[in-house]
Measured scan of single mutants.
Amino acid sequence: TRVETATETAWISLVTALHLVLGLSAVLGLLLLRKQFPAHYRRLRHALW
Protein backbone atom coordinates (compact mmCIF):
# COMPACT_ATOMS: atom_id res chain seq x y z
CA THR A 1 0.00 0.00 0.00
CA ARG A 2 2.94 2.31 0.65
CA VAL A 3 4.18 1.96 -2.94
CA GLU A 4 0.71 2.78 -4.25
CA THR A 5 0.57 5.97 -2.19
CA ALA A 6 4.00 7.01 -3.45
CA THR A 7 2.92 6.38 -7.05
CA GLU A 8 -0.25 8.38 -6.49
CA THR A 9 1.74 11.29 -5.06
CA ALA A 10 4.12 11.14 -8.02
CA TRP A 11 1.20 11.17 -10.46
CA ILE A 12 -0.44 14.10 -8.68
CA SER A 13 2.76 16.14 -8.75
CA LEU A 14 3.31 15.20 -12.41
CA VAL A 15 -0.20 16.30 -13.37
CA THR A 16 0.17 19.52 -11.37
CA ALA A 17 3.49 20.27 -13.08
CA LEU A 18 1.93 19.59 -16.49
CA HIS A 19 -0.96 21.93 -15.74
CA LEU A 20 1.45 24.64 -14.62
CA VAL A 21 3.58 24.27 -17.75
CA LEU A 22 0.51 24.31 -19.99
CA GLY A 23 -0.88 27.38 -18.26
CA LEU A 24 2.43 29.21 -18.47
CA SER A 25 2.93 28.38 -22.14
CA ALA A 26 -0.64 29.52 -22.88
CA VAL A 27 0.00 32.85 -21.15
CA LEU A 28 3.35 33.27 -22.89
CA GLY A 29 1.79 32.40 -26.24
CA LEU A 30 -0.94 34.98 -25.72
CA LEU A 31 1.63 37.61 -24.76
CA LEU A 32 3.71 36.85 -27.85
CA LEU A 33 0.61 36.92 -30.02
CA ARG A 34 -0.39 40.25 -28.50
CA LYS A 35 3.05 41.70 -29.14
CA GLN A 36 3.57 40.46 -32.69
CA PHE A 37 0.06 40.27 -34.13
CA PRO A 38 -2.14 42.84 -32.37
CA ALA A 39 -4.87 42.50 -35.00
CA HIS A 40 -4.97 38.71 -34.70
CA TYR A 41 -4.98 39.01 -30.93
CA ARG A 42 -7.92 41.40 -30.99
CA ARG A 43 -9.87 39.11 -33.31
CA LEU A 44 -9.09 36.15 -31.06
CA ARG A 45 -10.27 38.06 -28.01
CA HIS A 46 -13.52 38.99 -29.73
CA ALA A 47 -14.02 35.35 -30.69
CA LEU A 48 -13.34 34.12 -27.15
CA TRP A 49 -15.16 36.76 -25.12
Rank of each mutant, 00 (worst) to 15 (best):
T7Y: 15
A39K: 10
W11N: 04
L14F: 06
T5V: 08
V21G: 10
L44C: 11
L18D: 01
A39Y: 12
S25M: 06
R2C: 11
I12R: 09
H46G: 09
G29F: 15
L31Y: 03
K35W: 10
E8R: 06
L48E: 05
L30I: 12
H40W: 04
W11A: 02
L48M: 13
T9P: 14
L44T: 03
V3K: 07
L22V: 15
L31K: 00
A17R: 08
L24W: 12
L32I: 00
L30C: 14
R43V: 11
L30H: 02
G23C: 15
G23H: 04
L22Q: 02
L14K: 04
L30Y: 03
A10K: 01
I12P: 00
R43Q: 10
A39T: 14
R42V: 09
G29S: 12
W11E: 05
A26K: 00
L18K: 01
V21C: 15
A26I: 14
T16Y: 05
K35Y: 09
A6I: 05
R34W: 05
I12G: 03
G23E: 03
A6T: 10
H40C: 05
L28E: 08
T16F: 06
T5M: 05
E4K: 10
P38A: 02
L24M: 11
G23R: 07
L28W: 01
S25N: 12
R2N: 13
A17F: 07
L14E: 01
H19A: 15
V27L: 11
T9C: 08
R2M: 14
L24G: 02
L14P: 03
A10D: 03
A10E: 15
L31W: 06
T9K: 12
L14A: 05
A6F: 03
V3Y: 09
L28P: 03
L31A: 12
S25E: 00
V21L: 15
R34V: 13
P38F: 02
V3E: 02
L48T: 10
Q36A: 07
A17C: 11
R45V: 10
F37W: 07
P38M: 03
T1L: 13
R42H: 13
V15K: 04
W49I: 02
V21M: 14
G23D: 03
L28D: 01
W49Q: 09
V27T: 11
T16E: 00
Q36D: 04
L30V: 12
A10N: 09
W49E: 04
L31G: 05
V21I: 11
Y41T: 13
W49D: 00
I12F: 03
L22G: 14
L22E: 00
A6N: 06
R42L: 11
T7K: 07
A17M: 11
V27M: 11
H19M: 08
L22D: 00
F37A: 01
A10I: 06
R42P: 06
I12L: 11
L24V: 10
T16N: 04
L30Q: 01
R45E: 04
L44D: 00
